[in-house]
Each structure stands twice: as structure tokens, then as C-alpha cells.
Design a protein around this nucleic acid. Sequence first.
DNA 1: AATCACATGCAACAATGTTGCAAATAATTT
DNA 2: AAATTATTTGCAACATTGTTGCATGTGATT
Lengths: 138, 138
Amino acid sequence: MKNEIAEILKRSQLSVTGSRTKILELFQEANGALAHADIEKRTDDSYDRVTIYRTLQTFVEKGIIHTIPTADNSVRYALCKDECSTGHHHDNHVHFICDDCGTTYCLDNITVPEITLPKGFTQKRADVIVSGICKNCE
Amino acid sequence: MKNEIAEILKRSQLSVTGSRTKILELFQEANGALAHADIEKRTDDSYDRVTIYRTLQTFVEKGIIHTIPTADNSVRYALCKDECSTGHHHDNHVHFICDDCGTTYCLDNITVPEITLPKGFTQKRADVIVSGICKNCE
DNA sequence: AATCACATGCAACAATGTTGCAAATAATTT
DNA sequence: AAATTATTTGCAACATTGTTGCATGTGATT
């Protein structure tokens, strides 16, 4: 719903614009993560490359999306679930990247196991990146 | 030791050259991970940028170093411990990235917890990226 | 020492990301 | 509803990062 998207933007004190609405829509449709290039393709060059970069940056800052670490140098973004934005939890994520089709899944229902760090280290965030073959490619 | 480094290279069927020796040395000195840019700096532009790219690629292929997933778009590399090259284990790594100084630590002594994936997903590799404040910056 | 295979450097290119600024659009005020 | 203000966008220019082909140089092999 357009209205829902507008609400999300306003809640983060962002102006409701065409590009932001469209990009948020894309994230809601995609049930995986998106890279900058994906967004460029799926918007048919309606928006400037720079605008997309800035929109993604803004969304990350506002906690609407989060980045997913990858072993190659391709940054991917995914929608944050509610817990992300409320901040009432450690920023923990489990992601699965398919070696075959490249799709990135957010496994939100899986909790990140506790990790005991050496003395002197303080944990702020933990990401688990599992790679292998996904359910569509097996 | 130069000899030890030469041994590592020969074992992987690689010619022993200046750049490879130097870059391997850097990894042994650094007790963290290195990015391409770090290596460029620490070699004082003695080697071409392309050579460094290719050397890193080769090292990854031969299992001498491995990449570390990061949330920003900076690929980092770290030396593989013996288990990496022998291949007798899952490719699992726990890394710690300091938000303050940016140093990346390989926490080899910490084991990656088992993660139960949804049906249809097959795990090949798992990386845990913990970020926060390291022992030097606390 | 000569040959062969491989590694390197250079040049050129491609992709990705950043910054400043003027024009356009959204939000706010009157 | 129009005018003002604040914010966002697009363009241009640039910076960084990574890739490829090819001639030259160096390490390995005989």
C-alpha cells in the first residue's frame, strides 16, 4: 500500500517523494535483499544513480533498511523488521546467500547464537552469513 | 622467515616472486586482516595495483588467504590457518571488526555455532561478523 | 646457459561510489 | 490557495576500485 509506505517515511521524518516510495516498494516486493544495481534495473533508470545511493544511505541511517555483509564486495540491503527500528534488541541478523542464484534471504526467525568474545572486546552487532544452495536451486 | 614463505608458495605450486613474498610477509606481520589499500600503502607502491589484485586473487584460490565479509564495501583478506588449506573442515570463520580503529581480528579459537536452516537450504560456509570495540580501543 | 612457463607492468577501460551546486519538488506558513 | 522555506533531485565532474589484453621481464626447468 502506498499509504503504508508514506507512513513509514513520515515516521522517519523524511519527505515523501517518488524515488523513496518506489524504492521502498521494491524492498517490500522483494523477499530477499537488494543491491544498488538491482534497484537501478528495477526502476528502469527513472532515477539518477546518485539519488539511489543517497536514498539507500538515508534509509540505512533511519533504520528502515540494513546492510548485509558479503564476501565479495557487493553491498546488499534489506528491509528491517520492526525490532530493528525500535532498537530493543542487539542488531543481530542471520542471512543466507545462495551460491547459485545469488539471492539473499533474511532468516529473521533464526536467532544469532551467543558468542563469547576474548577479554577486552565489546560486542555491538553480530551478523551471520551462511552461504550454500537455497531451496529454489537445490 | 623468508624460507617459510617460499615453502608456502611452492606448496601451492606458485612461483616465488618479490611481490608474493612481500605480501605474504605483510599478512604474517599483521595480526589482523588487510584490505587491498592497506597492502598498497605498506608496499610503498613498489608493485603495480594490478599485481596486488592478482596476487590476492591467486592466494584466495590457493587457500592461502580468505576473504572476510564486511558491511561496507571493503573486501578484507586474512591468512588462513592450517585447517583452511587442508580442507578438512567447514569453511567457518568468526571475525571481529572494531568500529573505532577498523582493525579486523580473526577469532580462530572461537567455533561457529551450528545454525539450523529452513528446509531446502544447504550450508556450505558460514561467517560470523561481530563488530564493536576491540581490546585496544576500549 | 638456453628454453619455457609464468608473473609483472602498463595502458586502457569498466564499474562503483562521492561531492558541489543549481533546478525542482515537497512541506510549511501566511 | 499562494508564497515561503526546507528538502530532494539531477547533472557534471571527479575519485576510487576493480578488470582485461598484451608486451616485457623474471622465475623455473632442462
